[in-house]
Computed example of a mutant assay.
Amino acid sequence: MSQTTQTKPAGKGGPGGRGGSGGRGGPGGRGPPTYGGGKPGGQTRRPRREQEEEVWVPKTILGKKVAAGEINSIEEIIQDGLRIQEAGIIKKLLPDLKSEVVDVGIIQKMTSNGQSTRFKAIVATGNQNGYLGIGQGKSKQMRIAIEKATNQALLNVSPIKLGCGSWECRCDQKHSVPFKIRGKGGSVTIEIIPAPRGLGLVAGGKIKRLLELAGLKDAWTTAKGATPTMNSTSKAILDCLKQTFSQG
């Protein structure tokens, strides 16, 4: 009497199944191998491309002088009354600048072809040690608007004279402004008063961040007008801090 043996069909985890010995992405599976150390059976990943930094090629006479090492500071450019037209000049003279997006928004208007939508961005750049620049950019894409604003902020970088103008402190450290200053931008008027060391920055959120990028650690501030409008507020702050260098 002959015995019959029954064979079980290959399951999902068998040699001929979907998983094989290594899951869907292993040998015998259906998926291709993963990249970048991905888990077996995961989705295919393409290797990341590292973003290459563009090499600055000076186009203006001032840019060529800076690249050649004939000019080593922004103060020399301002004293000679020259105009900075290339952002690469600022990056060359101040390699430690940090950029930060201050405000973003949407601009909508009706045209003959329908509703048009654009993005706007305000970017501030500074090294937290006496230099600050603020710029604005607009474009149909947010990324391009931020790039335009960053480039404009670099062109608007101005030196700021730090000091201690507080009668309560009278130290020789550069932690505040040397004297009382007032600046205006649109309907916004901002006043910065020297403060003793250790007080901190008495200011609102975004105004405080701009002062930190400039390098201030202690100061009293007062603001009047439509301060939520960052376009006017940022201009008022930059106009205010420029006076420390021009009047000092």
Score class of each variant (00 low, 15 high):
T5V: 14
T5L: 11
Q6W: 07
T7Q: 03
A10L: 04
G16T: 03
R18F: 04
G19R: 15
G26F: 06
R30W: 14
P32A: 15
P33S: 13
P33E: 12
Y35M: 13
T44Q: 09
R45Y: 03
R49N: 10
E50M: 13
V55Y: 08
G63D: 03
K64T: 06
K64V: 04
K65A: 08
V66A: 07
G69C: 06
I71D: 03
N72F: 11
I74Y: 05
E75M: 10
E75S: 11
I78R: 14
D80Q: 15
R83M: 12
E86L: 04
A87G: 15
I90R: 04
I90M: 12
K91F: 00
P95K: 06
P95E: 05
E100D: 13
V101D: 07
V104Y: 10
I106N: 07
N113E: 15
I122G: 00
V123W: 04
A124P: 06
G126N: 10
Q128T: 12
G130F: 11
G130H: 12
I134A: 14
G137P: 13
R143K: 15
I144P: 06
E147H: 14
L154R: 05
P159F: 02
K161W: 05
L162C: 03
S166A: 05
W167L: 11
K174V: 01
V177T: 11
P178S: 04
G186K: 01
E191T: 13
P194F: 11
P194V: 12
A195N: 12
G200D: 11
L201D: 13
L201T: 12
V202N: 10
V202C: 12
G205M: 09
A214L: 02
L216N: 02
D218W: 01
T221D: 04
A223H: 05
A223F: 04
N231M: 05
S232Q: 03
T233V: 03
S234V: 00
S234F: 00
A236P: 01
I237S: 02
D239M: 10
D239F: 07
L241I: 11
K242G: 09
Q243D: 11
